[in-house]
Structures are given as C-alpha cells and as structure tokens.
Design a protein around this nucleic acid. Structure first.
Lengths: 127, 127
DNA sequence: CTTGACCTTCCCATGATGGGAAGCTTGAAC
DNA sequence: GTTCAAGCTTCCCATCATGGGAAGGTCAAG
C-alpha cells in the first residue's frame, strides 16, 4: 500500500501520516526501492487506532502513551487513568465554554437587535 | 502610562498588547521621545474591551468587528448577530466535546481498571 | 514515450500565546 | 555623577494540529 491508500484506509490524511512519522508517533514506514512509503495492514491498524484516539480528542502526547500501553503489557489501570484525566479536561473546557455561551445568550436576550445604538452586549464589554 | 502599566490595568500581557498592535486589532500606541509606547486611559478602555471579548471566547477577527461597531454607529442588530453566531459556534464545540467525554466516560465505566491487560478503552480504539 | 496521478522533501501559514536574547532607557540609590 | 536594576524596544523561535504549495522523481495506462 502506498501512503495514499493508507490514508484512505485509515482516515488520516497523507500529510498527517508523514507528520506523525516525523514526530515519532508511529514508526517509520518501510520504503520501496524508489523511496515510496509502503504500508501493510498492521500499519493501517495503528493509524486507525491513532485516528480514533484523535477523534476522542486525545493529544498526540496522550496518543503516544496509549499506543505504548496498547503494544505493551496494557495495564488497564493506566489506560483508565489517562482516559479519566482526559474526560476531566474535556469537562473543564466544556464548563468554560458553557459559561461564555450562557453569558452571551443572556446578554443577547436583552438586546433588542434593531438599529438603535444602545446595546447591552457592547455595554457589558465596555463597562 | 508605559506598556507594563497598561498591561496591569487591562489584564492583557505586554506581549499580547504589542501583538494586537502589530496585527492592527488596536491602533498604534503613541511613542515617547525614546520610543516607549505611551498609553492614556482611553487606550486602556479599548484594551479592557478586547480582554472582555476575548474572555467570552471571541476570535481576534470577531473582536475587530465588535470594536468597529463599538466605535461606529453601533447598530445593535449586527452586534447581536455576531454574538449569537458565536454562541452557536460555542454550542457546536460543546456538543462535540460532550460526545467525546460521554463516550470515554462510558468506556471507562466498563473498564475494571486493574492490572489485567483486557481493557475496553483500548478495545474501542483498536476495533 | 507521453501524460496524469501519485509520491518525495522542504518551506510557509494558521491563532493565541509565551520565552528569550541583545540592546537601549529610566529612575533611584550610593 | 556613576552604577544597577527594572523596564522598554525589536526580532526570532516555540507551541499544536493541520494544510497549502513548489520543485522534482516515479509509476501505470494509453
């Protein structure tokens, strides 16, 4: 498989596959005589693992740890710890954004939204 | 006021004030004879406006529009439209992260979390 | 053998923020 | 008056994940 096929099969762009290789997230791909990267099914399994982890919002550093656990002794305690830490991080960011959205929603509800210059949203930003 | 005082008074780091000036978000500060940036209270008002908008999660492009509305005819219809678009964007991202967190929470709940190698979280990532 | 699709590497860009270096200015203490 | 620290200036680099694009090599089908 060339990188294009591996990209299609894994759902990661060729650009990102090269990037992940360059930062050491996945191992270096074998090369054909002409220098093309060559991928086997096992390599695509790894790439799919990476894509699913990425879709769950894990950073590359976290994915790196997950990969090591996956390929190693896989103690589920450590995996669970990583996952719950990530959940906590997500929840923290969710709460931050909910507060922003709530504030703005409230301000917008009190904004008549016509052509008058008096606007509670601008008022809140300037006060 | 020097940039340090303006930073303390506005809650934006000196580094970011220079950056905002360089990208044209705020006007160029006046300079002393020796080249130091000099800020008046009105400049700090602008910086505080920027900080509050930033705290509500607006991008610099959006803040730029809000500043123009603030300093111009301030039609509240346009401000409200911007605010609600931003709320919609926040809600979209919140929903994405909630889905990630929910999935992970569910997987972690089914993970015994001991030293056994069998882990539903890794299972979901590899399947 | 040409052509078009694919591959390679390398550089640059995003957006918001910070670190740090080299050098100049200011104000206060001695 | 000099000296010293703190603060200012500009400039370059880094983050994180991702993509664009250029210049050039390779492969398969016509």
């Amino acid at each position: 498989m060339n990188i294009g096929q591996a990209a299609a099969a894994s759902g990661i762009s060729a650009k990102m596959i090269r990037h992940y290789e360059s930062i050491g997230l996945c191992g270096k791909a074998k090369r054909s005589t002409s220098g093309y990267r060559v991928y086997a099914d096992t390599d695509v399994h790894v790439l799919r693992f990476i894509r699913r982890a990425r879709d769950l919002g894990f950073s590359t550093a976290e994915i790196s740890k997950l990969l090591a656990l996956w390929h190693g002794r896989r103690p589920s305690a450590e995996v669970k710890r990583l996952a719950l830490k990530h959940v906590a991080d997500l929840n923290r960011r969710i709460a931050e954004m909910q507060e922003m959205a709530g504030t703005l929603q409230h301000l917008a509800a009190h904004c008549h939204g016509d052509e008058r210059p008096d606007c509670p949203i601008l008022g809140a930003l300037e006060s």
